[in-house]
Every structure is written in structure tokens, then in C-alpha cells.
Design a protein around this nucleic acid. Sequence first.
DNA 1: ATGTCTCGCTATTATTTTCGTAGCAAGAGG
DNA 2: CCTCTTGCTACGAAAATAATAGCGAGACAT
Lengths: 111, 111
Amino acid sequence: MSKSPGRWRHHDTSNAFSLLAEQLGRRWALRVIWELRAGALTFRGLQAACGHISPSVLQARVHELVRIGVVEKIPRLGYRLSGSGEQLYLQLEPLGDWAAGNSQILRVRQE
Amino acid sequence: MSKSPGRWRHHDTSNAFSLLAEQLGRRWALRVIWELRAGALTFRGLQAACGHISPSVLQARVHELVRIGVVEKIPRLGYRLSGSGEQLYLQLEPLGDWAAGNSQILRVRQE
DNA sequence: ATGTCTCGCTATTATTTTCGTAGCAAGAGG
DNA sequence: CCTCTTGCTACGAAAATAATAGCGAGACAT
């Protein structure tokens, strides 16, 4: 992919989305953001909030989220959403509403 | 998990979201929904739209999305978003805006 | 100083998922 | 008959995830 600007006619929404989807389309990524919605959590607190997540995967996910600037590490409190991370969560919230509206389907078919 | 209603104090948003996140947090799941946004695509068309996705994974993802009622199969046209699938996409669209706004970060850090 | 917490995290091995490629059966059209 | 595209499956290799144990550092009390 070229780095030259103006290569994309209108917005780069489509390509940008696929990059984002690649990050969020990893196990626990969405969940981690979701669990940080109320505020900072320690590593182990986050681990507990997610239920059964192995620390190695949590470490990997958290690092990736830090790298894309969605999550930041704070000395004593652990991890929390960054500014853009909170914005991302706000865009994520409607998904929760959709999920609540379609929870029947999600629950029944999960097996 | 009990099937009894009223088991969740307020909404079941949180738990419902984690179920949804489990489905969307698989590789290509978000991307597939995204690529179907403009209308129906054949299996191979969808494969091409996603770039490099192996047919076995695409088949698995599409099946899962059909099972949760987000995508439906049409005899001649291939696959398209269902009613609730389109609603889900509408909730997904803001993510594209966020991604476009933060595309710098996403691009630079992807390595 | 010693013991005992919790913390963030790493190491290791087993299991699951995804990839990449090849190719099949069915249908359309010639 | 042939050729083409379709949806899709099979299979071995590679990568991601799971599960568990445990380490080193810091806080705190004794």
C-alpha cells in the first residue's frame, strides 16, 4: 500500500476499518475494552473481569491495545482506556444494545 | 446459566455483549459483515473482497454468522446481511469513522 | 530482617484455530 | 462433449490460544 496521501478518493474508511477489524478480531480484544469501560483495572482485576482468560493472551491483547493507543498503563492503577480508547468504547456501546436486543439468538445458538 | 428471566438485575447488556464479542472476536468476522454492507456477494466474491482469506475459514465464519442470524444465504446471489445483520452493521459503521480518524496509529503500528 | 501478601508478568506445554493449496461436484453455456 | 464459474471440502503446516505453574518486585506487618 502506498503511503502517498490522496490515494483514496473520499475517506479511507474502508481500509481503516479493515485494519481496526484485524485488531478487534482477535480473541478477548473487544471484551478487554468493554471491561475497562468503568475505569482502570489492575492486570489481575482485568483477568478476573474477563472470566477465563490466560495471562499470556491477556498480556498480548493489552500490549496490542496499548500499541494502537486505545489503552494506557498507569503506574499504580493498572490499565485504563485512553482518550481515543474511550471514544472507541462509545462507538462500541451500541453493539451492546444490539446484543441485548438479540440476546436470545446469541444465547440459544452458542452451544 | 439459568434460563429464568429476571436473573440479571438491570439489562443483560454486559453479558449479551460478551457473547457477541465472542462471535465478532474471531478472525474475519467483522470484515465479512463489513464487506457485505453494500449488498449480496457470492462466496468467491466475498473471498475476493476480504483479500486473503482461506475458503475454509470463510466457510466457517459465514456459517457462524448465518447461525446467529446476521447473514442469510440466497439461492443465486450468494450471501447478504439479514435484517438484524443490517442493524448490526449500522451499529458497526461508527467504528469505521473512528478507524478513519485514527488511521495513522493503526497504520503505523501494524508492522 | 523475615514472612506474607498481591502485583505484573513469563515459561512451558497442549490444544485449537487459521492458513495455504489443491481439488471436487454441480450447474450454466456452448 | 468441453469449458467455465460456482460453493465448498480435505489436508498438512503454521500460528494463535489455553491452562497451569511459578518468578521477581514491591508493600506491609511482625
